[in-house]
Nucleic acid binder design. Structure first.
Lengths: 346, 346
DNA sequence: CGTCGTCGCTGATACGGTTCAGTGAAAGTT
DNA sequence: AACTTTCACTGAACCGTATCAGCGACGACG
């Protein structure tokens, strides 16, 4: 019933523990013949290396950490994280490296988790997500000396390598597309203002609108929930000069906005164009289907994991620009200022 | 730069390693005075127990495993898993036990993961989700001797304890509610037929409909994606005698169904009532908001984690019936057979 | 006063691997 | 033939913690 150890294998093969270790790890020091015999025995008795023993010697935990720091009720509805995780896993599985996951309420708790994980030797490194402006996690992780990769714009990641995609480029695509459709009043329902990418999008949005001759470009910040997305939309659409297009920072808010518009008897896209962000399956399920910014989130996760593994393995660092996001026009966008007519909404 | 060990503490305190170990683990064998001194030193130099060393001695990995076995693209959109995870974590954090997560493609891979995790001593136990009929994981986990808790109906969990909620009761609530509204033709867009809870709902649905005088009660199975939910809905609504109500097995399909109905110019709820399942934030974001079966998923996760920790700690087993699900009527259900009139949809 | 029990602690060992220095034998070199 | 090198392997140390047996000192008790 006890788990077999290399000592058991050594006994049965009539060699020393050291020889078994060499044989099973592909190290030189044993003949091909003996190696084969040892491997056969290991296979037969179902031996698995004990990670604890291995990491105690080798200082490798064969696990990386991921901490998610949004309140639980916001997490569930964001397909982003699950997609990211599945991308990460795809890369880890190949190295039989495990993923430790923790959900916390704030940065303080998150930092405590890193301290614990690293201090206890539980992980070899971590992937940091949801980069904030002046993110307090960065200096702590740097000081700990824990290998880490950040998903987010390199401007905020200090000495840590990052995996990111050019958000300004795709936002330009969005703004120019809407401007070309004749929209001169575009609102943005943004996410948490503390997140770095929110600020980057904020600034870029203002600039790009100015460039494209979009005179009005109000921004409302939210917490990413459908509820706040709906409220923001209601406010925008109730103002005297209402926007003819709204760009949302995630899909759930875009859907909520769509519902609000319909509730207010505004036709989408004839009277209001809507652009979502992240293109979850959700955007194709509603009517009209949502024009959205799409990016390969699993690929982002895979890149991050890959970069982290390289960093852990060879110390090789370096940021990586991931696959660019693209605008995917669907049924929720149309030329501005059309009359209220029956519009076939995809 | 090296991590401090108990040997460092012992040296500074002028005692033996054994004494330090006793002191830091609350074991008897040291005076209160010495204990305090040792704890102060540990605190000062930032000592953390090395999990590898600890589990090598004590045979506790202080981690539990969770394997998700749906294709990545289905996972993202199901808020269920993230909510479950956050519930689990809440319970684990208290015991400073970690969660290992892995996403796999099929049961074979999942079983391989359990074998590896348990063989490598990486986890102390696991939580199994998405119970299938004749689930191949159950006998394997039983044979491995790995502590495990299953979320799902006890009828399929073998000797493993389970955490579950009475789905038949809430389904009765749904059917009787719709029947009371005059619906005599209720369709169900179900999830994967291989899942045990799908079969249980299937059977219960047929029986309950019969009991309540609902003559027609077709069931269509899907893979939980919005796409298949939409297709199933389209088929149901195109049939000659179309249902006046549809019950969906998750929210994303319910939303997809709602869109299809609107696309077909059917008024919801006047001409078609819709009931969702799991009540993610999604159901409150669309118009009309969805009547849905709601249950406390984080609480489920917390219960599962709690039960598993007890099982690991004291070997104490026993299934636990979790908090019951409830029907939450909102705007997507109404009496059957109403004329097509302007209905204020919440 | 001698003995036993308890307290507070020490020293050693176990856990299951990795790794390094060493060793005897065979092969190669000059 | 004497020497070096290589090969295949052994034995032991080591990683950081838990735990157990043992030991001296002290107090209680008969």
């Amino acid at each position: 019933m006890k788990r077999p150890t290399i000592a058991d294998i050594a006994r049965r093969a009539g060699v020393s523990k050291g020889a078994v270790s060499y044989a099973l790890n592909g190290q030189p020091g044993v003949s091909a013949e003996t190696r084969a015999r040892i491997q056969a025995i290991a296979q037969e008795i179902g031996w698995r290396p004990n990670v604890a023993a291995r990491s105690l010697s080798g200082a490798r935990a064969d696990a990386i950490g991921l901490v998610l720091c949004r309140p639980a009720r916001f997490l569930g509805v964001e397909p982003f994280f699950m997609e990211l995780i599945s991308g990460i896993e795809g890369e880890l599985a190949a190295s039989s490296c495990a993923l430790m996951l923790q959900v916390v309420a704030d940065h303080e708790a998150e930092i405590a988790v890193y301290r614990r994980w690293w201090g206890e030797g539980r992980v070899d490194g971590a992937i940091l997500v949801d980069l904030h402006t002046d993110d307090p996690r960065i200096p702590v992780v740097e000081r700990l000396g824990m290998p880490a990769v950040v998903t987010g714009h390199p401007s905020g990641t200090g000495s840590l390598p990052s995996v990111w995609s050019d958000e300004v480029a795709v936002l330009r695509e969005v703004v120019e597309y809407l401007a070309a459709l004749g929209h001169r009043h575009i609102a943005r329902v943004a996410g948490l203002p503390a997140l770095l990418h929110t600020r980057i999008r904020d600034e870029a949005f203002a600039e790009l609108c100015a460039e494209s001759g979009v005179g009005e470009h109000p921004v409302v910040h939210t917490d990413y929930t459908g509820e706040q997305g709906a409220r923001a939309t209601r406010r925008l659409l109730s103002s005297r000069a209402r926007p003819t297009a709204i760009v949302y920072d995630n899909d759930i808010m875009a859907v909520a906005g769509l519902s609000v518009a319909q509730e207010m008897r505004l036709d989408v896209p004839a009277e209001l164009s809507i652009v979502g962000w992240d293109d979850s399956p959700l955007s194709q399920v509603v009517r009209p289907s949502l024009t959205a910014v799409t990016r390969d989130i699993p690929a982002c996760g895979a890149h991050a994991a890959q970069t982290l593994l390289r960093l852990i393995g060879s110390g090789e660092t370096g940021s990586l620009e991931g696959p660019p996001a693209r605008l995917l026009p669907r049924g929720s966008t149309a030329p501005a200022g059309r009359d209220r007519t029956v519009s076939r909404a995809m």
